[in-house]
Design a protein around this nucleic acid. Structure first.
Lengths: 293, 293
DNA sequence: TCACGCATGTGCAATAATGCATGGTATGGA
DNA sequence: TCCATACCATGCATTATTGCACATGCGTGA
């Protein structure tokens, strides 16, 4: 009984294999060769005297026991995440790596100057920027700190509202001219994602609206607007900083989600996060006019 | 940030070192050489970029960070314990090892026949018996199953009352004779552990009592009683099965704690535990007369 | 039907981890 | 004061682990 001591790393391997389904997937997740995964699994099975996986043609199929193991190993993983967050949070050094994440389009015009200032002020800190469309999981330490466009920070996260935002309608200059001169001319909207209809709050002196194209990507919308394909409702900072776009008066400024800086409770007090937070709040608030009418 | 992946086994090593205080103690706990512990600690410190221990002449002194790490590693350990219990509990095989624990003195007269029967019925199961004075931690899997003398099974444990018990006074035959013939002769009690005074419920026709010696060990009490040093209050099964002791009428049968078989909830349904439980309940209940007047 | 992609299993060489032996240092008791 | 003890650090041979190259099996689509 006491002799049954199993390597914790082998348990983590079981977890990765249950999640990944195949040796290759688990191996990539763990950063080892798949043969290593196979051998570790065999070792755990021998140590516990249990069959954990059925070897099938299309991968390793976990038995009920393996699922049980994976469940508890996932708990261990959560503890490990909390551990690393805790260590990171009490780190008072301004050296090493800081990983931040932000929506792609926020990086350039909005964060660029702040990031530049941070790098100059703290040259010892290596900054890792992860620009993503889908938000990273700060609980699982995919990043130390996130800049997000949302209404509230999530659970167990701390947040600070950086600036308030508004949106307006933007288009290529010739499109804008045509619309400004002829109130009867049709306004072709370029919609983002799940927005089915033309924006609410449109100025009633322009009666002819229709949704022309829908996109799942904001970069594409900006490109289409630049190419003169239509009018897009975008945050002020984007419309103003994207070359070849001008504001169109069909849509008065609309309230939009604010920009937040968020981090996990445990990581929030870290020196690097604090330093970045201070520089960012300064820069963003100094330029708050960029984000509203 | 993502590169900061630390071996779970190394975290366990930190935990062991925080607990043990010295490399040697941690090494023994983990079953490795102490140099290995030192190297793993160095590796974790390098990977996290933090000093976890002060190297002192009399051992490794954990920093606050190390304590934090140990705290979370202890959580991981709890998850691992739960994992092993779960796997053990769903084990339907009647092979392998079963670890049981019981108070030293219960093993011989009370459990002996049942243990013998179990070994004969299930020769494929290797039985590990751990006779201890202080109860083992079933939550931490120090044993699969325990036979205990107590009023109730503990938290998160399942239990079954095997038999009820009574105590009485026992002594060497010559001491017993003297007391039986002369009600005025002094009765010298051999007390166990924390019992300060002579037992309650003594028959009033023997007026002269005193505590002669106190012991912290029941084996020693039985030896002293055999040697004629005095009268001891012991459970019936002990008094009756210890050579050279006879019952003394100064103390009518007293209620005592019952004998329980207990196991952790998770382990309880295991095939080996179930099998042992059934054989034991049968044997104990067939001999329930041994334990009471 | 055959080729292809994706999966697992195995043998071997490189690498990393480990245990052992040795040396150094502080502490406490004869 | 000297010795015994218990601790940590380092160098080296051994062992275990790992990655790579190659072989194999199975389902899918041209």
């Amino acid at each position: 009984m006491h002799g049954m001591d199993i390597s914790w790393d082998d348990l983590r391997t079981v977890l990765a294999l249950v999640r990944g389904g195949t040796l290759a997937a688990a191996a990539q997740d763990l950063g080892v060769a798949y043969t290593t995964v196979a051998r570790r699994i065999a070792r755990v099975e021998a140590a516990m005297g249990v069959t954990l996986f059925e070897r099938l043609a299309d991968g390793y199929k976990p038995t009920e026991t393996a699922k049980l193991v994976a469940e508890h190993a996932a708990q261990m993983e959560q503890s490990q995440d909390a551990l690393l967050r805790g260590v990171s949070g009490r780190d008072k050094r301004l050296t090493g790596t800081l990983t931040i994440t932000a929506p792609q389009l926020l990086i350039g015009p909005a964060l660029g100057p702040a990031i530049d200032a941070f790098c100059k002020t703290y040259p010892e800190v290596r900054l890792d920027v992860r620009a993503t469309n889908t938000p990273l999981d700060l609980t699982r330490r995919e990043a130390d700190l996130a800049i997000r466009i949302s209404r509230e920070p999530g659970d167990s996260l701390m947040g600070l509202r950086l600036v308030e935002q508004q949106t307006a309608a933007f288009a290529a200059p010739d499109v804008a001219d045509r619309i400004a001169q002829d109130h009867q001319s049709p306004v072709d909207w370029l919609n983002y994602a799940a927005f089915e209809d033309v924006p609410k709050g449109i100025d009633s002196s322009w009666p002819n609206h229709r949704v022309r194209i829908r996109f799942d990507d904001m970069v594409a919308i900006l490109g289409a607007a630049q190419a003169g394909l239509g009018v897009a409702r975008v945050p002020f900072f984007l419309g103003r900083t994207t070359a070849g776009l001008v504001q169109v008066p069909v849509l008065p400024p609309q309230p939009y989600m604010d920009i937040w800086i968020v981090a996990h409770r445990d990581v929030w007090p870290s020196a690097k996060v604090t330093a970045f937070r201070e520089i960012l709040t300064t820069h963003m608030r100094a330029n708050r006019g960029l984000y509203v009418a």
